[in-house]
């Protein structure tokens, strides 16, 4: 067994450049949508790989909960350099909220075995940003969130969190859950060799019964939040056009002041 088992939680999200729509049950309509590894999770994968490279005897497992297509997110993380992957896929997971997803992730991570769990700061679709904290509670381990820098040595993770007013130096003993921000360091590109190697890396597929979770504990019906209504964002309208008849500056200032922007 490797001395440092790193698990990275990743999410497969709709490509934000595509036209996104809602399905009849008001979840995101994923048919005909291209998806990708959430960009914010790439930072977590990068930090995991850097830690692995620094400590030598480590192993990086990427975990996702999602439909069949979510394999795309795992493939990318593996081609960046992850060692193996765990894919939790079950039709009954459809519509799960952060509480449902976090309980599934916690079981999957326990099933895999872990010393350090790494997450992105939020998903780029749901954007809740609370999953790392909930996950730490479910696993019963310390949490260090929103980190811009971290190192792991002798069973201790040392980190820096940059806030608006202060930078905090934080420390926790392993096992722990951490999340990193987009300031933690640019993620590497999957290289050609990484892509070819990823094909041969093991991907374990689990369903709810493998993790001992009942179907009624997760999914849309078990979600703590309900979407009552969703509407497509209206097309952008033409803004206010100010004609500069010599008083353009004043008009602009009035416009901004009228909206309490200055």
């Amino acid at each position: 067994m490797k001395t440092l088992r790193i698990v990275v939680c990743v999410k497969y999200v709709p490509d934000a450049t595509c036209d996104r729509r809602f399905a009849d049950d008001l979840t995101v309509d994923r048919d005909d949508l291209d998806g990708l590894l959430s960009e914010l999770d790439e930072y977590a994968v990068e930090q995991a790989l850097q830690i692995k490279e620094a400590v030598d005897d480590a192993e990086v497992t990427v975990v996702t909960v999602g439909p069949e297509d979510a394999l795309g997110a795992l493939s990318k993380a593996l081609s960046m350099g992850g060692d193996k992957a765990v894919h939790v896929e079950d039709d009954d997971l459809h519509g799960s909220d952060v509480l449902g997803t976090s309980s599934v992730l916690a079981r999957a991570i326990e099933h895999t075995g872990y010393d350090l769990v790494l997450c992105g700061m939020a998903s780029t679709d749901g954007g809740m940003g609370v999953l790392p904290s909930i996950l730490a509670e479910r696993l019963g381990v310390p949490q260090l969130t929103q980190l811009s820098e971290l190192t792991v040595k002798d069973g201790v993770v040392t980190a820096r969190r940059d806030g608006d007013l202060a930078s905090e130096q934080l420390r926790a003993s392993l096992p722990a859950v951490v999340s990193v921000t987009d300031r933690s360091g640019e993620a590497r590109y999957p290289s050609f060799k990484g892509i070819m190697a990823a094909k041969k890396k093991p991907v374990e597929t689990l369903d709810l019964s493998d993790l001992g979770i009942a179907a009624d504990e997760v999914g849309l019906a078990a979600a703590w939040t309900k979407v009552d209504e969703a509407a497509q964002r209206p097309p952008r309208t033409v803004g206010t056009i100010l004609a500069d008849d010599g008083s353009g500056g004043r008009q602009l200032a009035d416009f901004l002041a009228g909206r309490r922007l200055v």
Partner: peptide, 13 residues
């Protein structure tokens, strides 16, 4: 699939 994955990398680059 490998070609598509490589294309995604080059496109991002």
């Amino acid at each position: 699939e490998e070609h598509d994955a490589f294309r995604a990398t080059v496109r991002q680059f």
